[in-house]
Write a protein that binds this DNA or RNA. Sequence first.
DNA 1: CCTACCGATCGGTAGG
DNA 2: CCTACCGATCGGTAGG
Lengths: 198, 198
Amino acid sequence: MKVDGRVERGEQTRRQILRRAAEIASVEGLEGLSIGRLATELGVSKSGVFAHFGSKEELQLATVRAAAKIFVDEVVTPAGGATGLARLERLLDGWLAYSQRRTFPGGCFFYSVQAEFDARPGRVRDSIAEFDRSWAELVRTAAADVPGLVGDPAQLAFEVVAYLDLANARSVLHGDTDAYARARTAVRRALDRATRQA
Amino acid sequence: MKVDGRVERGEQTRRQILRRAAEIASVEGLEGLSIGRLATELGVSKSGVFAHFGSKEELQLATVRAAAKIFVDEVVTPAGGATGLARLERLLDGWLAYSQRRTFPGGCFFYSVQAEFDARPGRVRDSIAEFDRSWAELVRTAAADVPGLVGDPAQLAFEVVAYLDLANARSVLHGDTDAYARARTAVRRALDRATRQA
DNA sequence: CCTACCGATCGGTAGG
DNA sequence: CCTACCGATCGGTAGG
């Protein structure tokens, strides 16, 4: 068995490439991400980056997977211990905090790349759509699991996710931090209405 | 005075270029818009397109202005005759219809290009941000002009615009027309709450 | 508006 | 992982 560390080194390089790729893509898009530029920024050769992925599309797909892992670590996992209303609140607050702290410099990675690929067929779009579906499903399920919920949990999930997305968009476009306060107010009131005693 | 029609012909060509540019940009983005491709699709030479604008950035800025004019014609102007609650409703319904009928093949032009440019400094981003500010302001003012409104009109405007944007995003990404129904339900309930007798 | 061209950069490949 | 290269395409220019 080889123990010279070449494999681990390769995996570490790969992780560094993907971290930087996700950062760039959140600002410039997955199409604006170029292999040559990525190589220059990381101080390696272009074909050094290329060899890890084999094509630009594979690099984009790997970047989406890497960003999804970061999203899960920062938003989904921290809400794991809670149930009912507390779980839904943690997911929504966690998303707003993840966007606001600029885990990715261009705001939520998935907001950026969704708008970029939503109208273009292909595997990259499919993987982004799949991520979006699972996030929407997660919020819907969390809403449905709130005891004594008033109204349609899917409708509630739609409305609160809308507040999150607009806060991210306004904040990045206008440098407007008020947008997060508006979203938090909207979420709180929506949850209050949905859990009020009828 | 020249009456040979060359000036009018030039302006017509320019309008055709910008209409096609806005369509392409709503799908591929303003950066994905290339002068050469635009020329090929319109059956003219690359420098023929180039001569109308002088630089890619000017083409992008002209495309944003052309799309803004289309947006105003389709969403803002038709609501012009109404006042109070009817005006706000017409603006919001008009926006959803404009998105749903795919005036631009990639859904709302401004949703697409906002996400593309929101984190990149420059004149194109500035012009997109200015458009977004004026749309947000228009909805806020319309909400503030609803007689007897309950609550903060700016908060209401934030919430209803969020529903519009998410309906557009979900519809384009997933081909999900339910999203418009969800947004209409959310808008109607928000307006009902804001105009209820306390 | 056209043809013809420029340097730069793109994704990708050959060969080591 | 590297150097060196490929054809294609980019934005932009010259000259008419």
